[in-house]
């Protein structure tokens, strides 16, 4: 009736341990070697090759990025120095042109003043010469008038 027959049966039972055990162990060991050559090695090679490739690329990209950053900073400092140099040149040129302008202005002013003075002197001379002449003529004329009057008497 009781068909369980768990323990103690000479034939069958759940805990019937026999040569299945060592043979299964051998089978699993064999399977380990088969799976190693068929699965673990080839897949591992491919995966690790790819991981290496990816990590190499990442390192390379990082190196390139840092190089780019260095170049960028370099360029920035160059740009800044060039800008300040340009500013210096521009202000220098402005100063120079300012100076030249002032010099030219002064020169022209002086010249104008000098020619004005000369003209004034000349006018004065001519005026006084004309006045002398005029007074001399007036003297002559008065003398003539005087002489004529005296002679008529």
């Amino acid at each position: 009736m009781l068909a369980f027959n768990f323990f103690g049966a000479t034939e069958g039972g759940l805990f019937d341990i026999n040569a299945t055990l060592p043979l299964m162990a051998i089978q699993v060991v064999a399977l380990t070697y088969i799976l190693n050559s068929l699965f673990f090695k080839p897949v591992g090679n491919v995966v690790e090759k790819r991981e290496k490739f990816v990590s190499n690329n990442i390192i390379e990209a990082k190196n390139k990025l840092s190089e780019v950053k260095k170049l960028e900073a370099d360029l920035l400092t160059q740009l800044q120095s060039a800008r300040s140099e340009a500013q210096r040149i521009v202000s220098e040129a402005e100063n120079e042109s300012d100076k030249l302008y002032k010099e030219a202005l002064e020169l022209a002013n002086n010249e104008a003043n000098a020619s004005k003075e000369k003209a004034r002197l000349e006018i004065e001379n001519q005026t006084s010469a004309a006045r002398d002449q005029l007074s001399k003529q007036a003297d002559d004329l008065s003398e003539l008038i005087v002489n004529r009057l005296i002679l008529k008497k």
Binding site: E11, G12, G13, A19, T20
Partner: peptide, 22 residues
């Protein structure tokens, strides 16, 4: 429960159903 398909090879006995499925 606890029935097996026995294979007899010489002196040793094996559970045939385990090997068949495996």
């Amino acid at each position: 429960v606890g029935q097996h398909l026995y294979w007899q090879i010489g002196n040793i006995r094996l559970h045939g159903q385990v090997f068949l499925t495996s």
